[in-house]
Design a protein around this nucleic acid. Structure first.
Length: 214
DNA sequence: TGCCAGGCCGGGT
DNA sequence: ACCCGGCATGGC
């Protein structure tokens, strides 16, 4: 593997500047967005969030009370709407069941413990859990996504090591455990991915990292 | 028109 | 421990 973690960060920041993530007003909105954006473009998620806001239900208690079928219809533009309505419901069950539906109580919980709890919620996998920890709760956790892996892959990161946990450890071992740094870094990787490294893009030679792989 | 997007689950090897 | 099909809309 030849991906220089710190050097890459400097180049990305120089090229793109601060990304101001997560694009949401409140922690709860971050959580909802994190579930809705699973394998889905953010523009579609925005439409769904807009529907929820317009209906005045982008709040824990309102979503908890709402029938699942109604929730599904509101989030329709985000795709997988039946699945995601169920996932939102399962998160809410956990949120109210263990934390009284209060973000402050979530935030008070230990990072490692809460991560395990989140992973036990049906519909929340590693990326969604880590996005919640970092972007909604400010915990120092590095978020890995499809762009991160693809970018690493194209920079010679060994395919066999390209699993979620390995990639996450690779970054976290080489960076200060700062929420602000992890926030900016992940956002920059997504920016790079959107602009230069989508699946259908050819291997990129003009991106700000100056790609090397054939 | 077909492929893709800020994953995850469940069933099968 | 991996591998795969399913889930679904909107943009290009």
């Amino acid at each position: 593997m030849s991906f220089g973690v710190r050097r890459a960060y400097k180049k990305l920041y120089a090229a793109f500047g601060p990304q101001h993530w997560w694009p949401a007003d409140e922690p709860f909105e971050v959580i909802v967005g994190a579930i809705l954006t699973q394998n889905t473009s953010w523009v579609n998620v925005e439409k769904a969030l807009k529907n929820l806001k317009a209906a005045g239900v982008l709040k824990p208690r309102a979503l908890l009370k709402m029938p699942e079928a109604r929730l599904a219809s509101l989030i329709r533009p985000a795709g997988y709407y039946n699945i995601k309505a169920g996932r939102l419901k399962s998160f809410l069950g956990f949120f109210f069941g263990s934390y009284a539906g209060e973000i402050r109580k979530l935030r008070r919980s230990s990072t490692a413990g809460l991560r395990k709890e989140l992973l036990s919620v049906k519909g929340i996998g590693p990326e969604t859990a880590d996005s919640i920890l970092l972007y909604a709760l400010g915990k120092p956790v590095f978020v890995v996504d499809a762009y991160t892996r693809r970018i690493l892959m194209r920079h010679g990161f060994a395919a066999a090591e390209n699993t979620y946990d390995k990639v996450q450890a690779y970054f976290m071992r080489r960076l200060k455990h700062s929420p602000k740094l992890f926030n900016e870094y992940h956002a920059l990787l997504v920016r790079l991915g959107k602009d230069f490294c989508r699946k259908s893009d050819p291997v990129c030679r003009t991106c700000p990292l100056g790609i090397s792989k054939t």
